[in-house]
Design a protein around this nucleic acid. Structure first.
Lengths: 158, 158
DNA sequence: CCTATTCGTTAGCAACACTTACAATCATAA
DNA sequence: TTATGATTGTAAGTGTTGCTAACGAATAGG
């Protein structure tokens, strides 16, 4: 119930002038990446309204579960985030009691992150929701195309 | 000079545990789209620091140039943006005297957007910068792969 | 004419990315 | 061992973006 007008915009014939879509921008690869990301983000947000989680938050929960005791800097590197941005996300997750910070024993500067029980439960629900979301994205591709797309995108973010 | 640590993170061997990259998340298509978008956005921002323009602002300048007299709603639909978000972007561009709002003669509710001279000059510079940016993105693909990738991404944002 | 819709606008909220600065900790060289 | 420099987390602040809710003005349709 968010995108009715977009549906129109897509199926409607070019409004006034003739060709009249997005013009030469449509040849710009970066532009398509941004639009595709925006579409994904919108659908993700809808899928996760009940859980009240963002993409980043889910990614962090997921990685902390995969790597118990991981430090914030390590997290930031894996998700290509700023240290300060990571802080903000960790703060929100901690406020919800999804994870805790323990001082690392090996390095007093670092914080060892661990999921709390509510975090584990939420992650389980989140993974189910991600299944839905992924199904939505992948519905327009064959398995081979999905692998192709992932391979191509991987080259961009290394 | 922003991403030295990321270069390390990418070329460095998996830190502690064994496989230890991003784990099962790497099979999630949406995750790769987000990372690729993030990488693009970072490079774009670096490329456009001198011009002090964002992706959205460039897209709007470009479209207004392609479709003189376009209304804000039409812009919003083409770029998949909210009306309110579009307002904010138009306001910033207008504050820099890059474009102006004229009341539409055919529909008193609409604002007809036109580029001002500074806007045209800036768009010319922006298009050159986009050339650089695109070259950076495309450097890792063949022409065929670029066409493929655009086609696949287009299916996501319709 | 009356009603519903559209468009622009304003205001506010949340998330994120970035910067600068600072304190604590660690690593290393003198 | 001490001094120096780098790393880590933290805090505070700025800017961009996306969303909502509400309102007035203009339009379209009955």
């Amino acid at each position: 119930m968010i995108k009715d007008k977009f549906a129109d915009a897509v199926t409607a014939p070019p409004p006034p002038e003739g060709d009249a879509d997005i013009g030469a921008i449509k040849d710009i690869l970066g532009f398509h990446i941004r639009l595709a990301h925006g579409a994904c983000l919108r659908h993700f947000t809808e899928t996760f309204t009940d859980l009240d989680l963002t993409q980043k938050q889910v990614s962090v929960l997921w990685l902390v579960d995969d790597h118990p005791g991981i430090a914030q800097t390590d997290l930031a590197q894996r998700l290509r985030m700023d240290r300060a941005t990571t802080m903000a996300i960790i703060n929100r997750l901690q406020a919800k009691h999804f994870l805790r910070r323990d001082r690392s024993e090996k390095d007093g500067r670092k914080q060892a992150l661990h999921l709390e029980e509510p975090g584990k439960a939420m992650l389980a629900r989140a993974k189910a929701a991600i299944g839905e979301h992924e199904a939505w994205v992948k519905s327009r591709f064959s398995d081979k195309e999905v692998r192709q797309l992932i391979e191509l995108l991987s080259r961009i973010h290394e």
